[in-house]
């Protein structure tokens, strides 16, 4: 089970966002994509999710070109969790999770479909809120609903686009534990675009560092998340700390503030 991307290029109108991206993603691994704003993380995730069309290059699922597979078949294999929650404002939690069965059903949900929805909701511990409106649950719970929807879709590959960007630290850890669990115990592949380098440092099996739509470095955490790479891409000196309690990436505040001088701001 392999997702292979070869020389993938994507454009928004005349502007090229991704330049000849190539990598493979194998089963059971958490692959984190890191990079500064505008580096192309979300574009890469959306292209793999079938939301954007590449202008060049190929995406192959188990040696089959996805452009030659029906939309529905691809939908059964690749699931996507977006970063924003602006939609589904008038749906219940259950209705949102049920949407994940769309690639598998013609019209009516079977007992099998409902069992899958049940399992997904139980996994994410949201069964008790099935009848609640999505507007009535917290941001963290809503993220779990979206993950449950993707699990109900039963894909082999999960794509997360900055899944913790709007969450507090407890819910961020909660989400990444779920992501790790999906990849580990469920033996699925997970690709996560992430801003917080600490999460990539702690949870990733492999990391891709993107900058200006190109892969700067790709490999294990130790290979990619080096001081040189991070400084050259983010322009911020970082410290990499390993303790018994975990691994941390922290800005070297003094050096960072010397590099990024404060801008004069005139408050009107």
């Amino acid at each position: 089970m392999t997702l292979t991307i070869e020389k993938l290029s994507v454009k928004y109108g005349p502007v090229q966002i991704l330049h000849e991206i190539s990598f493979s993603h194998v089963k059971g691994e958490v692959l984190c994509i890191i990079g500064p704003n505008g580096s192309g993380k979300s574009t890469l995730i959306k292209t793999l999710a079938g939301i954007l069309d590449p202008c060049e290059g190929t995406i192959t699922l188990d040696k089959r070109d996805v452009s030659e597979i029906s939309r529905n078949e691809v939908a059964k294999r690749i699931g996507y969790v977006p970063q924003d929650f602006q939609y589904l404002t008038s749906s219940t939690v259950l209705e949102a999770v049920i949407l994940g069965r769309r690639p598998h059903v013609q019209w009516s949900l079977t007992r099998h479909d409902l069992a899958k929805v049940d399992t997904a909701m139980e996994m994410l511990n949201i069964t008790s809120m099935a009848e609640k409106m999505l507007t009535e649950v917290s941001g963290g719970e809503r993220q779990r609903v979206f993950i449950a929807r993707a699990i109900a879709q039963e894909p082999d590959y999960f794509l997360f686009d900055e899944p913790t960007s709007a969450l507090d630290i407890r819910h961020q850890i909660d989400v990444f534990q779920m992501i790790k669990n999906i990849a580990g115990s469920k033996n699925r592949s997970v690709l996560v675009a992430v801003h917080d380098l600490n999460f990539a440092y702690h949870y990733a099996d492999r990391v891709i560092l993107l900058d200006e739509g190109k892969i700067v470095s790709m490999g294990t955490v130790d290979e990619v998340m080096t001081e040189d790479n991070i400084i050259s891409v983010y322009g911020v000196p970082m410290q990499f700390i390993k303790t018994d309690a975990g691994r941390y990436v922290l800005p070297d505040w003094k050096k960072a503030e010397e590099r990024i001088p404060a801008r004069p701001v005139n408050v009107m």
Partner: peptide, 9 residues
């Protein structure tokens, strides 16, 4: 949303 709908085929 359009993005999720597209991903759902």
């Amino acid at each position: 949303g359009d993005d999720v709908a597209k991903n759902l085929g």
